[in-house]
C-alpha cells in the first residue's frame, strides 16, 4: 500500500525573486498589493504580499514530484491563507495523509505552510491514484 493514514511528508520551498517575477510574467496579476511596496505597507503589511497562488504552485510540485508514485491526479484542493507570504520567505511545508479511500483509490492530505514555526496557510488536497 503506497499510502496510509498518518504518512507524512516534508519539503522546503523558497519564494524567490525568479518565482515571483515569473508568476507575474505568466499570469499578469500586477495588483499593487503584490507589486508596490508603498501600497502594501499602506495597507498594513510589512512588504509586498506574494500571490497566494504561488503556494498552489508549490502544492502542484508536492503532488507531482514528492509522492512515492507519479500515477496521481488532483481531484480537489482547498487552501486557507492565514498570514501573508513575503518575497524571500523560506517555507516549511508538511503534509499528512488524513484518509485513504481504497474503494476509489483516493488519498486526502492535510497540509500546512509554516515560516519559522508560524502557520501561513493550510488546507486539504484530495488526489486520485490513476
Amino acid at each position: 500500500m503506497l499510502f496510509k493514514a498518518g504518512d507524512s511528508y516534508e519539503h522546503q520551498f523558497l519564494v524567490s525573486e525568479e518565482l515571483y517575477s515569473g508568476f507575474i510574467h505568466l499570469f499578469e496579476d500586477r495588483n499593487p498589493l503584490h507589486t508596490n511596496e508603498d501600497f502594501a505597507q499602506g495597507k498594513g503589511f510589512e512588504s509586498r504580499v506574494m500571490h497566494g497562488n504561488i503556494l498552489n504552485g508549490f502544492l502542484s510540485y508536492f503532488i507531482g514530484e514528492c509522492l512515492p508514485t507519479k500515477d496521481v491526479i488532483i481531484h480537489t484542493q482547498e487552501i486557507q491563507y492565514k498570514k501573508p507570504v513575503y518575497l524571500g520567505d523560506q517555507l516549511d511545508f508538511s503534509a499528512t495523509v488524513q484518509d485513504y479511500y481504497e474503494s476509489v483509490q483516493a488519498v486526502v492530505f492535510k497540509y500546512q505552510f509554516k515560516r519559522e514555526g508560524v502557520v501561513l496557510a493550510k488546507g486539504k488536497i484530495q488526489i486520485g491514484l490513476i
Binding site: 481531484h75 484518509d99 479511500y101 481504497e102 474503494s103 476509489v104 484530495q126
Partner: peptide
C-alpha cells in the same frame, strides 16, 4: 466518473463506513 469518486468519498465519510472497490 470524477463526481462518482467524490460521492463515494463523501458517503464513506458521512456514514463512517469503508467500501471496497469490488462492492462499488
Amino acid at each position: 466518473s470524477l463526481t462518482h469518486i467524490q460521492l463515494v468519498v463523501a458517503i464513506e465519510k458521512h456514514f463512517k463506513v469503508r467500501f471496497t472497490s469490488k462492492e462499488i
